[in-house]
Simulated assay, not measured.
Amino acid sequence: MSILVIGLIINPLAGLGGTRGLKGSDGEALRALAADMTEQERHRSQDRALRALKPLQAAENVEFVTWAGDMGAAVCAELGLDVTVLGGTGTELTSPEHTRQAATLMLQHGVDLLLFAGGDGTARDICDVVGESIPVLGIPAGVKMHSGVFAVSPEAAGELLCELARGGLVGLRNQEVRDIDEEAFRHDVVRSRFYGEMRVPGEGRYLQHTKVGGRESHELVAADIAAWIVEHMDETTCYLVGPGSTTAAIMEELGLENTLLGVDVVRGGALLCSDANEAELLAVLQDHGGPVRIFVTAIGGQGHILGRGNQQISPRVIRAAGVDSITVVAAKSKIANLQGRPLLVDTNDPELDAAFCGYREVITGYDDRILYPVARMPTEEAK
C-alpha cells in the first residue's frame, strides 16, 4: 500500500484577531495581544486542525511530517497520529518566518501534500516557499480567507484527505492565493491583491458517466490530453513518447508519424528517432544534454506504467533523464477501473522503483490532473 506523506503546518495565531475585531491576524498588534487571550481563543487553529485530522486516525497508509508544539506536533500527539517532527521554534508567538522555515524543510523532506491551518496570510507564506511545486490544502482557520486554496470546512478537508488516501480520483487544480491589506480594511477599504497560485486537490467524486461508446470516448479524452501537452511543449526539451494509444494522440497532435508500440523521440516539433531502443535513447539523451520529458501511460486493467511494454525506457534511460522527468497520462475511466489499486512500476531496478513510488500527478484531460498512488507491487486487494 502506498504511503501518503502529509506535511502539517498550523499557524497558532491564525484567526485570533477575529473575536477582537482586528480584521485579521497579521502584524505585531496581534502578537502583543496573544499573551492576554483566553485558552479557547488561542487554540482556535489547533481545534480546527483536530477536526480536519480526526477522520485520518484510522488510515493505515498516512504519515505526517510536522513542526514541534502548537505548529503541529501537539495536535498529532492528541490524535495518536504517526508523525515525524522536523524542528521547532522555541516560542509560542510564531511568525511568518517560522511558517516559511517549516515549509522549506517539508519541501526538502519530500512530502506528497502540504496541509496547513491558517488564513490568507499563512497561505501567502506557504506560497512563497512551495509555489506550484507540490499540492497544498488549507484548513480554514483565519479571519481573512479570500484565497481559493482552502477547503470549505475542516471536515471537508478531512474527507478530501481520506479520499486521497483511499486512492480515489482526486483532481488537482491551480487556485489563486489572495490577501487584503489589513490596515486599509480597518478603515473600510478593501484592497485585494493576487500573490500567486498553488496546486490544490479538488473533489474526487466527479468521474463523468456517459453513454458514448468506450472507443470513441477514449479517443476524445486522449485528444484532450494531447492538446494540453502539446500546448505546453517548448523548443529546448527532448520528449520521449512511450507506447500506447493515449500517448499516440500526442504524436498525432504534433502531426508526426507514430510507433504505437514503440518509443518515439521529439524535439522542436521534429521527429528525432522512431521506434527507439534503449541504446538509441541513451545516445539521444547524451547528445541532447538538456531538459527531458518522458510520457508514459497505464496498461488497462493492470495499471503498469513502467516495465510492461515499454522496457526501452529502461532504468539507465530513466536515470539519465531523471525520475521526475516522467509524466503519466491516462483517462479517468482507466484509473477508475483500478478500483483504488495503485499504478505499478516494475523496472527490474528495486531502488529506482522505490524512488518512483508515492503519490504522483496523472494528466487526465485538458488542464485536468489527479493525484494518484504509484507502487512497486500490488496491494493485498490487487492480488
Rank of each mutant, 00 (worst) to 15 (best):
K211L: 03
A103L: 12
L33C: 12
E280F: 08
T38R: 14
T247Y: 13
E257N: 14
E183S: 11
V212E: 14
Q302H: 02
E60C: 09
A49H: 00
D188V: 01
D112Q: 05
E361N: 09
L164R: 00
V130C: 04
Q208C: 09
S153I: 12
L220T: 13
G90W: 02
R178C: 04
I180S: 06
D349M: 07
D128C: 14
Y366L: 10
G340A: 11
A141D: 13
L261H: 10
A227S: 13
A141G: 15
V129H: 12
M71D: 04
I139Y: 01
A68I: 09
Y195A: 07
V111R: 08
S153C: 15
A270G: 07
G90R: 03
H109V: 07
P135V: 00
D36I: 04
E380M: 14
I326L: 15
A74N: 12
V317M: 01
R193W: 05
D287S: 10
D112N: 01
Q46S: 10
L33W: 08
T104F: 01
T246F: 03
Q302G: 12
A355G: 08
V143R: 09
V177L: 14
L306V: 02
T246N: 03
G214V: 12
H218Y: 06
S245F: 02
T327V: 15
G21C: 10
G322A: 15
E216T: 13
M251D: 11
L79P: 11
E380P: 07
G300S: 03
R205C: 00
R215T: 03
L22E: 14
A52I: 02
V263G: 00
G142S: 05
E231G: 02
Q57C: 04
E28R: 15
G87I: 13
Y366H: 08
L50R: 06
P373K: 02
T379L: 10
R100S: 15
R44W: 12
V266D: 05
C76K: 10
R191H: 08
K211R: 12
R308F: 03
A320H: 13
C127A: 14
A156M: 10
I299S: 07
G268W: 08
